[in-house]
Structure formats: C-alpha cells, structure tokens
C-alpha cells in the first residue's frame, strides 16, 4: 500500500476524527477541567482548587442521585443484555421470527417521549392497563410512579422494553456462530438449554460483556430521560438520578463547577467500565484480532 493511497484514505477519516475531537474529546476535557473552577457561565471562571468536590459530595442529593443511578443501571443492565440475547436467539430462525424482530426493535425505534407517554398510561395507578390486570387477578395494585417504593421498579420495568440496540448486536453475533457447532452439540444429544449454556454463551461471552458495559453507559442517560419524562425525578427523589443532579446544578443553579465535580463520579464509573472493556478486548482479542470484529 503506497503512501498516497493511505493519505487519501486518512482524508476520508477526517470528518470522523475531527468530530470525535470536537464533539467528544474537547467537551469532555472542558467539563473535566471545570471541576476546579467556580463558574456560573456569566463571570469568568475562578480557580478554586478542589473545593467543588466536597461541595458535591456533601450534598445529600448527590449521594442519593448516585445511588438511584446505580440502582437503575445495575439491576436492568444484565436483565436487558440477557433478555436481548434470549430474544435474539429466539429470533434467529424459525417461524414468526420476522414478527418477533419487528416487535422487539419497535419500542427502541419509538421517540423516547412517545414511549414515555405510552408508559405513563400503562402505569396509571387507577385506570392504567397494568393495574387493571393486577386488580382483575386480585393482586395488589401499587401506585407505581406515584409511590416512592415502586417508582424505580416501574422505570426499570419500562427500560426492559428498550433493548433494540443490544438485540441487533446479539442477532449479528449469533449469525457469526457456525451452525456446525450447534448441530454437532445437538447430534450429541444436547438440549436447547445445554446448547445455550455450553456452546452459545461461552462463544458470545465477550460480546455480551462489551454489550453490558455499553448498556451501562446507555442506561445512565436512558434512565434519566425516562425518569425525567415519567416522574420528573420524584416522588420525593425516588427516581432522582445523577444526570438530573448534574443538569440541575449546571442549568438550574448555574453551578458548573459542582456539576463538573459530580461529572467526575460519572467518569469514575465510566473509567471502570472502560478498563473492563479494554481487558475484555485484550483477553478475547475482540476488535483487535485478524478474524472477526464483533461489535
């Protein structure tokens, strides 16, 4: 490959590379650095050292928002990824697979605000379809979004419907699994469960792990959007998440310093995820191997 060709290739990468720099790296560094300043966006930033960190940490809403965010990531993420995987396994072949593919992907294709409105109705404590069903079954019908204990589970429940991206990735990954392997296992008398457990899961483990990390990042924002649209963070902060703390600190109280300090918590979480991704990528040579790039 000569240099000219390569240079022209790199020119094609230019918009992407510049975009990453301008829309991701620069803003990330900017918000990273602002944590050391008192900045209300009106007067010039004033260097305050690490003052913003204790300010954020001692705000009781901050720890609450971190807790809520973690709760809305740790519980739904594995469920979502595993659910997406199972749905993809089911949708890989056979009759009605097209219907299933359309159905699974549809909620993720809806605008978030439309999806939220549908759930606002589904979860309506007195007249919504869900509680009608529960009451018809003589089960107790919780107040869902209006009940501090049930608001988080309600949002986690709705999040289980938004698995479109993971579903696609799993479907693609499953297509890369040679069918010979499964056929051989089936010939050996392995049932569907055993094939899943001993053939597919080990093969797809790196993809699922990467997906889980990606899903955690997605969930940080998705759970906020949904909570914002469904319950506004309430009742009494039950669904108040870290992004909302940051949004309110920055755009509500003009406290960009504290908002950025709180962002650091996000970076720590994200950083841990990144290390995980890197280790997984190294371990399995995903994306680095000569063979297949799966994500």
């Amino acid at each position: 490959m000569n240099d000219g060709y390569e240079r022209r290739l790199k020119r094609l990468l230019l918009p992407y590379g510049m975009g990453i720099g301008l829309l991701f790296v620069v803003p990330a560094i900017l918000s990273f650095a602002l944590a050391f300043f008192r900045y209300d966006a009106l007067s010039p930033p004033r260097f305050v050292g690490t003052l913003n960190f204790p300010l954020a940490r001692t705000d009781s809403l901050f720890s609450l928002s971190v807790f809520n965010s973690l709760a809305l990531v740790i519980l739904p993420a594995p469920l979502r990824v595993f659910g997406a995987f199972l749905a993809a396994r089911l949708a890989r072949g056979g009759r009605l697979r097209h219907l299933l593919r359309a159905a699974v992907f549809l909620p993720a294709a809806m605008p978030a605000s439309a999806f939220a409105l549908a759930w606002l109705w589904i979860l309506n404590p007195l007249y919504g379809p869900l509680n009608r069903l529960l009451m018809a079954l003589s089960l107790s019908a919780p107040g869902w979004l209006s009940d501090a204990q049930w608001a988080r589970p309600a949002i986690a429940l709705a999040l289980l419907w938004l698995v479109g991206e993971g579903f696609l990735v799993c479907l693609a990954a499953l297509y890369d699994v040679p069918r010979d392997l499964e056929d051989a296992a089936a010939a050996d008398g392995a049932g569907a469960g055993a094939i899943l457990r001993y053939v597919l899961l080990p093969l797809l483990a790196p993809v699922l792990l990467l997906l889980m990390a990606r899903d955690a990042v997605l969930l940080l924002q998705e759970s906020f959007t949904l909570a914002w649209l469904l319950s506004g963070g309430g009742p009494y902060y039950a669904t108040y998440t870290l992004p909302q703390f940051i949004y309110e600190a920055a755009f509500g109280r003009l406290d960009f310093g504290v908002a950025s300090a709180a962002l650091w918590a996000l970076y720590v979480v994200t950083g841990l995820l990144l290390i995980l991704v890197y280790l997984v990528a190294r371990q399995w040579q995903v994306g680095l191997s000569e063979e297949e790039f799966l994500l």
Partner: peptide
C-alpha cells in the same frame, strides 16, 4: 389522595 391525583 396521591394515587387518585396521579391517576387524573
């Protein structure tokens, strides 16, 4: 009450 207000 809270539930009724949340419903309508």
């Amino acid at each position: 009450d809270r539930t009724a207000e949340a419903a309508i």
